[in-house]
C-alpha cells in the first residue's frame, strides 16, 4: 500500500479546498455582478446553485437527457428564475432601502427553498460525474476528475465574463451602469434592463456552479443559505465589487475551510468560513483587493 504521508494529506486538503473554493468564487462573482449594477446583496444567490444542481439531477439523471443537452437547459431554467426574482421581488419595491432589499431577497430565498423542498423532497441527490469517478493519483493525493470540471468551469466563466464586459456593447453598458446609473440612463442605457440582465447572469453562473459541484458534494434543497453566506464571505474577503477579489476570496475561503475541517475539527467546518467573514468585516472591511486603487480596475 502506498504510504500516506502528512504532506500528501495537506496536498489533498489544498485540492479539495480549491475545488470548493471555485464554487464559492462563482457565487461571489454572482454577488458582485448584481451588486455592481444595483448595490443589492442578493441573499438568494445560493439558491441558484441549489437549483442548478437539482434541476440538472432531474433532467440528466431522472429524465435521461444527455449531459450536453441537460446542462444548457438547466442554465436557462435557472436564469429564468433569476429574471423572475428581479421582476417579482426586487422591482416592485417602492421604497428601496438596504433593509427592505435584504428582506426581499431573504423572502425570495425561502420561497425558492420551500418550492425546491416541495418538488424534490428533503433527500440529497447525486449526479453522475461528467467523466467518471476513477480517481487520479497525483502527488499522493486522490483527485476526482470532477474537481477539474469545477475548476475548469470557473476559468471558463471568468474568461467569458471578461470577454462579455470588455468586448460586447451590452457588457460595456452594464459596466457604465455600475459606475454611474444616472449618467448611464442619460446615455440611453435602459437601467431596468441592465438590472434584469445582472440577475440573469448571476443566476446562470450560480447554476453552472451547482451543476458542476453536485457530482462531488451531492445537492439538497436547503444548501442555498450556507452557500450564499460563504459566497458573501468570499466577496468580502476579496473586496466588495472586485471580480479578481471574488475569485481570490473564494479560493482562499475554500482552502481555509478544507484545512480547518481536516486539521482542526470537521464539526466546525461551516464555522471557519463564517469566522473568516467576521474577521474580515471587523478588521479590514474593504477586503484584500478592495482598496481605492483596485476599484478603478475592478472589471476583469
Amino acid at each position: 500500500m502506498e504510504e500516506f504521508s502528512f504532506a500528501n494529506q495537506l496536498f489533498q486538503y489544498l485540492i479539495t479546498g480549491l475545488t470548493v473554493g471555485s464554487v464559492y468564487a462563482m457565487v461571489a462573482i454572482g454577488f458582485n455582478i448584481i451588486y455592481n449594477v444595483t448595490e443589492i446583496i442578493n441573499l438568494a444567490q445560493g439558491e441558484f446553485v441549489m437549483l442548478g444542481g437539482l434541476i440538472m439531477v432531474f433532467l440528466h439523471a431522472v429524465a435521461g437527457l444527455p449531459l450536453i443537452l441537460a446542462f444548457p437547459i438547466t442554465v436557462i431554467l435557472v436564469t429564468l428564475v433569476g429574471m423572475l426574482l428581479d421582476r417579482l421581488a426586487i422591482r416592485p419595491i417602492r421604497q428601496p432601502s438596504v433593509l427592505t432589499l435584504i428582506i426581499a431577497t431573504i423572502a425570495a430565498s425561502i420561497i425558492i427553498k420551500g418550492t425546491a423542498m416541495f418538488i424534490w423532497g428533503k433527500d440529497p441527490f447525486d449526479l453522475p460525474a461528467f467523466s467518471g469517478r476513477t480517481p487520479i493519483n497525483f502527488l499522493g493525493a486522490v483527485i476526482q476528475p470532477q474537481y477539474f470540471w469545477v475548476i475548469g468551469f470557473l476559468i471558463v466563466t471568468v474568461i467569458l465574463l471578461t470577454l462579455f464586459f470588455e468586448k460586447t456593447i451590452i457588457g460595456k453598458a452594464m459596466s457604465a451602469c455600475a459606475d454611474n446609473p444616472d449618467a448611464a440612463s442619460l446615455m440611453g442605457i435602459n437601467v431596468k434592463w441592465m438590472i434584469l440582465l445582472s440577475f440573469s447572469l448571476s443566476a446562470a453562473i450560480g447554476a453552472v456552479a451547482g451543476i458542476t459541484v453536485t457530482p462531488i458534494s451531492l445537492m439538497e434543497y436547503d444548501r442555498g443559505a450556507m452557500l450564499a453566506i460563504k459566497g458573501f464571505g468570499a466577496v468580502v474577503l476579496g473586496g466588495l465589487g472586485s471580480f479578481p477579489g471574488a475569485i481570490l476570496g473564494g479560493l482562499i475561503l475554500g482552502t481555509i475551510e478544507s484545512f480547518g475541517a481536516g486539521l482542526i475539527s470537521s464539526g466546525y467546518k461551516d464555522a471557519f468560513a463564517l469566522i473568516v467573514l467576521l474577521a474580515v468585516l471587523f478588521f479590514r472591511p474593504s477586503g484584500l483587493l478592495g482598496s481605492v486603487e483596485i476599484s478603478k480596475i475592478k472589471r476583469f
Binding site: 435584504i102 468580502v236 464539526g267 466546525y268 467573514l277 471587523f282 472591511p285
Partner: peptide
C-alpha cells in the same frame, strides 16, 4: 462593538454569520 461600526449589508451579514456560528456551537 466591531459589528455596529458596520452598516447596511455588512452589519446584516456579520450578525447573520454570528447567529450561525452560535448555532454550530450549540450543535458541536
Amino acid at each position: 462593538v466591531p459589528s455596529l461600526k458596520l452598516r447596511g449589508h455588512y452589519l446584516a451579514m456579520a450578525t447573520l454569520a454570528f447567529g450561525i456560528i452560535v448555532f454550530i456551537v450549540f450543535n458541536e
